[in-house]
Amino acid sequence: MTDPIRCLGIDPGIGRMGYGVIEKSRSRYISVSYGCIETPPNMAVPKRLELLYNGLREQIESCSPAFMSVEKLFFGKNTTTAENVWQARGVVLLIAAQNNLPVVEPKPSEAKMTVCGNGRAEKSQVQRMIQLLLGLKEIPRPDDAADALAIAMAGLAISKGPGTI
């Protein structure tokens, strides 16, 4: 893997999409930026997807990642929620393709394992470990942003470099 390298981690969602940019230089991980792109629940789905697209484009332009790490999704019974999240995830994959960014897709358990050493860690554990591992002054909030940072760390851990993803 080339050094340093930046990964944009994404926790997909239509109401709130977490993002986190981490730069890895040798064995050091640095938080470049993190947060959430939020959309109003009363807005039409196509407009919400457009807001997500524009927010992601801003992140890519401002941080110049080498690749993206997007959480793989698993759903149980709520098919309405699943449909909207899959559409939001499609926006993420589209913008990655448009920007020639390779994509890795860690499972939630892989992200938790990367930062906590336990694939079944609680959200609060992930938040606290992200704070410790990245030397942040505060716990990253909301948890979607912390999850996105964990997804970025997992992406950096499982990738061999942008040309080999």
Rank of each mutant, 00 (worst) to 15 (best):
W86H: 14
A157M: 05
P108W: 09
T114R: 10
A96L: 07
L49V: 07
R48C: 04
M17N: 02
E38T: 14
I30G: 00
E23M: 07
V85I: 15
E138D: 15
V92Q: 11
R26L: 03
A148P: 03
E105A: 04
I22Y: 02
L8C: 08
A154S: 14
A96P: 05
L156W: 06
K72R: 14
P162C: 01
I10L: 12
E61T: 08
C36P: 05
S33R: 07
K107D: 07
C36R: 03
F75C: 09
V91E: 13
G117F: 10
Q59R: 15
G163Y: 01
G135A: 02
L149K: 04
T39V: 03
E122C: 03
G119L: 06
V115H: 13
E23N: 02
G117T: 04
E110M: 13
N84I: 00
L134E: 06
K47F: 01
G18I: 06
A88M: 09
D147Q: 11
P162T: 01
S64I: 00
I130W: 06
D11K: 08
A111V: 05
A44R: 12
V91K: 08
I158M: 15
I14D: 09
L52C: 07
W86F: 15
L51Q: 14
A154C: 07
S31C: 15
G161E: 09
A154H: 06
Y53G: 07
Y53F: 15
R89L: 02
I5K: 03
G9H: 07
A96W: 05
K112F: 06
N42C: 00
R26F: 01
S31E: 13
P4E: 02
M153K: 04
G9N: 11
L52F: 06
S69I: 05
S27K: 07
T114L: 03
I139Q: 15
Y19R: 03
R141K: 15
F75L: 09
A150Y: 13
G119Q: 10
D143E: 15
G90N: 04
N118F: 14
A44T: 04
S69W: 08
K112H: 06
A148N: 08
A97Q: 14
P4R: 02
M1V: 02
C63S: 15
E23G: 00
T2C: 00
C63Y: 08
F74S: 13
K107I: 01
R128C: 01
D143F: 07
F75Y: 15
L8W: 05
P162D: 01
I30R: 13
N78V: 03
L149G: 10
T80L: 09
C63P: 00
G161D: 06
I95Y: 06
G135R: 02
A154L: 08
I5S: 09
F75Q: 11
Q127N: 10
V91W: 07
T79R: 12
E38Q: 15
N100H: 13
A97W: 00
V70S: 12
A152H: 12
E105N: 11
G13I: 04
A121H: 06
P65R: 05
S109K: 12
R26P: 00
E50V: 04
S27R: 04
P102V: 00
G9S: 03
E50W: 06
V103E: 07
N42P: 00
S33V: 11
S69M: 10
L49Q: 07
M17L: 15
